[in-house]
């Protein structure tokens, strides 16, 4: 078992707050599709699982080790949350791809430029974007840039929050293609929020349905 979360409990809404409690399990290569209507707390679940905010109960495990035993920065690099709104930093596309490699946790590693360029090509981003100011990218280009950056830091679990929302059909297919290849290496899994069922080309799917009024339901693969 690669990633497991048990009874993750959190509260949504200030007026008439409702508690949500969810559990899930992922083995190598699996993808858990998180479903539920808007405002059901799907993004909040991802933020809690990646320790960008705290829930009110529950525990998560990476390769059997509790998150209580893993420092938050190491946990976040391994259970990596890719936000719906892509984060762009000052500088070129290349600068943006290199940013995670400037922090201490990866002191010995540098950005694999060839791999980055290859991923750009796979995701239908023209090579000349490499030196372009990242702030000038379109929404679809920016979300692919953020996805490439998330893949390059090589987490064990990717938490993808509507990664294809800004993409057209060819770009969408190319992203899922890259994702399913990424998942074939051992010790990798993904959770995915998507409002459409465009993820059908992925394999080893399971589903988690978050209901707005506190209940939750799991149904099998």
């Amino acid at each position: 078992m690669l990633f497991e979360f048990k009874n993750i409990t959190y509260t949504l809404g200030n007026e008439g707050p409702r508690n949500i409690r969810v559990s899930g399990t992922l083995y190598n290569g699996e993808v858990l599709i998180v479903q539920g209507p808007s405002g059901a707390g799907k993004s909040t679940l991802f933020r809690i699982l990646s320790r960008l905010q705290s829930g009110i109960g529950g525990e998560a495990f990476l390769q059997g080790k509790s998150w209580l035993q893993i420092p938050s920065s190491i946990w976040r690099a391994n259970v990596h949350y890719l936000a719906q709104k892509p984060a762009l930093f000052d500088g070129s596309v290349a600068d943006n791809l290199a940013i995670p490699f400037a922090i201490r946790i990866r002191n010995s590693k540098a950005l694999d430029v060839n791999r980055a360029r290859e991923l750009m090509e796979r995701l239908l981003l023209p090579a000349q974007l490499w030196n372009q100011d990242a702030r000038t990218l379109s929404g679809g280009e920016a979300s692919r840039l953020a996805f490439i950056r998330a893949v390059l830091i090589n987490p064990m679990v990717l938490l993808l929050d509507e990664p294809t929302a800004a993409l057209d059909e060819p770009a969408r297919q190319s992203m899922y293609q890259v994702l399913s290849e990424w998942l074939t290496t051992t010790d990798r899994a993904a959770l995915l929020i998507s409002h459409t069922d465009d993820y059908r080309q992925l394999e080893h799917l399971s589903f988690l349905n978050i209901k707005p009024l506190g209940g939750h339901e799991r149904y099998g693969k």
């Binding site: 990646s50 960008l52 920065s73 190491i74 976040r76 690099a77 990596h80 949350y81 890719l82 936000a83 709104k85 984060a87 762009l88 930093f89 940013i99 995670p100 922090i103 201490r104 946790i105 990866r106 953020a146 830091i153």
Partner: peptide, 16 residues
Amino acid sequence: TTEIEAMLAFGATPWE
């Protein structure tokens, strides 16, 4: 906020 949380998600310390 978006950039700071992205940095945290890359494994940055709060200071970084």
